Simulated scan of single mutants.
Amino acid sequence: MPELPEVEVSRMGIKPHATDQVVTKLEVRQPKLRWPVPDTLFDIEGQTIRAVKRRAKYLILETDIGYALVHLGMSGSLRVLSQATAPDKHDHVDLHLSNGKVIRYNDPRRFGAWLWQEKGGDHPALEKLGPEPLTDAFTGEYLFEKAQGKRTAIKQFIMDNAVVVGVGNIYANESLFTSRIHPKRPAGQLNLDEANTLVADIKDVLATAIKQGGTTLKDFTQADGKPGYFAQELLVYGRQGKPCPECDTELESVKIGQRNTVFCPECQK
Results as ranks from 00 to 15, higher is better:
Leu4Ala: 05
Val9Cys: 03
Val9Asn: 00
Ser10Phe: 00
Arg11Cys: 05
Met12Val: 06
Gly13Gln: 05
Ile14Pro: 00
Pro16Thr: 08
His17Asp: 08
Ala18Glu: 00
Thr19Tyr: 08
Thr19Gly: 04
Asp20Arg: 11
Val22His: 04
Lys25Asn: 03
Lys32Tyr: 12
Lys32Arg: 14
Leu33Ser: 03
Pro36Ile: 12
Pro36Cys: 11
Val37Cys: 09
Val37Asp: 06
Thr40Tyr: 07
Leu41Tyr: 05
Ile44Tyr: 00
Gln47Leu: 05
Gln47Phe: 08
Arg50Ala: 14
Lys53Ala: 13
Lys57Thr: 04
Lys57Val: 08
Lys57Asp: 02
Asp64Cys: 11
Gly66His: 07
Ala68His: 06
Val70Ser: 02
Val70His: 06
Val70Pro: 00
His71Leu: 13
His71Tyr: 13
Arg79Phe: 11
Leu81Met: 08
Ala84Glu: 12
Thr85Asp: 04
Pro87Arg: 09
Leu97Cys: 06
Leu97Ser: 01
Asn99Thr: 13
Asn99His: 12
Gly100His: 10
Gly100Glu: 06
Lys101Tyr: 12
Arg104Gly: 07
Arg110Leu: 12
Lys119Cys: 01
Lys119Ile: 03
Lys119Phe: 05
His123Leu: 06
Leu126Gly: 00
Leu129Phe: 06
Pro133Met: 11
Leu134Glu: 05
Thr135Ser: 15
Phe138Trp: 11
Phe144His: 10
Glu145Trp: 13
Lys150Leu: 09
Thr152Cys: 09
Thr152Val: 12
Ala153Pro: 04
Lys155Gln: 04
Lys155Thr: 05
Gln156Cys: 08
Ile158Thr: 01
Met159Lys: 03
Asn161Pro: 03
Ala162Asp: 08
Val164Thr: 01
Val164Met: 07
Val164Cys: 02
Gly166Phe: 06
Gly166Ile: 05
Gly168Lys: 10
Gly168Glu: 09
Gly168Val: 09
Asn169Asp: 04
Ile170Asp: 01
Tyr171Glu: 06
Asn173Trp: 10
Ser175Ile: 12
Phe177Ile: 08
Thr178Trp: 15
Thr178Asn: 10
Ile181Tyr: 02
Ile181Gln: 02
His182Phe: 03
His182Leu: 10
Pro186Ala: 02
Ala187Asp: 01
Leu190Lys: 02
Leu190Trp: 01
Asn191Tyr: 05
Asn191Asp: 09
Glu194Cys: 10
Ala195Phe: 12
Thr197Gln: 15
Thr197Trp: 10
Thr197Pro: 09
Thr197Met: 15
Val199Met: 12
Val199Cys: 11
Asp204Arg: 15
Leu206Ile: 06
Thr208Val: 03
Thr208Phe: 12
Ile210Ser: 00
Gly213Arg: 07
Gly214Cys: 09
Thr215Cys: 12
Leu217Trp: 15
Phe220Lys: 02
Phe220Val: 01
Phe220Gly: 00
Phe220Leu: 06
Gln222Asn: 11
Gln222Lys: 05
Ala223Lys: 05
Asp224Asn: 15
Gly225Pro: 07
Tyr229His: 14
Ala231Thr: 15
Val236Cys: 11
Gly238Gln: 14
Gly238Trp: 15
Gly238Ala: 13
Gln240Pro: 08
Gln240Cys: 10
Gln240Ile: 10
Gly241Pro: 06
Lys242Glu: 15
Val254Arg: 13
Asn260Gln: 15
Thr261Val: 05
Thr261Gln: 08
Phe263Ser: 01
Cys264Pro: 04
Glu266His: 15
Cys267Ser: 13
Gln268Ser: 07
Lys269Phe: 13
